[in-house]
Amino acid sequence: MSEPARDTRFLRRTLTSLSGILIWAAHFGLVYGVQHVACREGAGWTGFVKPVIYLATVLAAALMGLVAAKARSWLAPDDPGAPDVSIFLRAVTHILLVLSLFGVLATTASAVLLPTCGALR
C-alpha cells in the first residue's frame, strides 16, 4: 500500500501566517487582564499597569518585526510536486502584520491618553 502524501508543516505555515493577529490577541489579552486585575486590587498595583503595557507593546512590535523578516524562510516551499503557495501565504502574513500592528498601537494609544483606573463619569 502506497504511503499517502503528508501535508508538510501545516502547523508551522498556519502559525506563521497568523502570527501578526495572534500577537495582537496575546497583547490585547495581557493588557486588558493586567489593567482589570490591577484596578480591582487597587493602590500599589495600578502604578505597574502602564509600564507593563508599554513593555508589552515594544515586545509585540519586535516580535512582529522578527516575523516580517523571517516569513520568507519560514514559508519557503519544500515540496516541488505541490503547488507553490508561499507567495500567497507571505502576502497574508505581511498584510495581517500591518493590520495587527495598527490594533496594538490603538490599544497602546488608549493607555497613553487615559488614566489607569476610574470610570471617568
Binding site: 486588558y32 493590520l99 490603538a106 488608549s110 488614566p115
Partner: peptide, 19 residues
C-alpha cells in the same frame, strides 16, 4: 461603570475591526 481605560481598549479594537 467599568474603568474608562478598559472601555478605551475595546473602543480601539472596534476601530481596528472596521478596516
Amino acid at each position: 461603570g467599568i474603568p474608562g481605560l478598559s472601555l478605551a481598549f475595546f473602543s480601539a479594537a472596534s476601530m481596528a475591526v472596521a478596516i
